[in-house]
Write a protein that binds this DNA or RNA. Sequence first.
DNA 1: TTGTTAATGCAGTAAAGTTGCTTTAATAAA
DNA 2: TTTATTAAAGCAACTTTACTGCATTAACAA
Lengths: 126, 126
Amino acid sequence: MTVIRKTQAQEAVLSLLEAASTALSADEILQQIDVSVNKTTVYRMLERFVAAGKVHFVTDTDGKAHYALCSSGCKQNHTLHNHLHFQCKVCNQVECLPVKLEVPVLENYEVHEMQFLTVGVCPKCK
Amino acid sequence: MTVIRKTQAQEAVLSLLEAASTALSADEILQQIDVSVNKTTVYRMLERFVAAGKVHFVTDTDGKAHYALCSSGCKQNHTLHNHLHFQCKVCNQVECLPVKLEVPVLENYEVHEMQFLTVGVCPKCK
DNA sequence: TTGTTAATGCAGTAAAGTTGCTTTAATAAA
DNA sequence: TTTATTAAAGCAACTTTACTGCATTAACAA
């Protein structure tokens, strides 16, 4: 396994994700970050974090990916993220909800990941 | 409500979706359709079908939308599609699974839609 | 048969993300 | 502390998916 180096950019992105109350898109990260980082760098970084199991993402209905730190309970069953996400149609933010869904075993299927998304209007935007 | 007219292109897309065993992307529809239809037309058509509740879609992890006909059991609880989908990492196909997930009521959230996606390797590709 | 307007086609555009390649800098080794 | 290695960053060009505006065509109701 290749080592992940402690760079200014990576630390900045990680602390952004830590402080965030919602799952951030690459775009949101680029807007909110206080150090100068290239777009490609952010994408590659997130890719590494996901591969390392530090971060997971959900793709919203518009096809945009939103990234969030993996919490302790986040991937209980191996690397599966069986918790619910919510996408607000008004503010376009996506958040992880502390709600786990039970999924029956899918005979003959090999399941690696899960992305459970609910869509509507969040409490703030109602 | 505006009327949906019975055009050659729309009938062709609908019968493609009917015959399909997987949820089709706009691209797959364009490749498989036997009449000459413009890309934009397909997108607008699908948009209409979704608005009319005839069709639903799931966005895969890569951000691409896959469309499937709504079956009778598809939207029992109003317009929610609380069944599971499966995206195969090998053949990149997405299918509707006859598995419904129970979602607890989300206090203070207004839920309009759901997209439940599992990702891995399908029986055919194993 | 005709008028209305839903649906189509075309061209151009936009957003999200990726690729190839070079350069920089974090870290291990000397 | 210096040097070597290579992970990470930066830049520019590109791909894919999808959308927009506008002109044209063709369902279908009257």
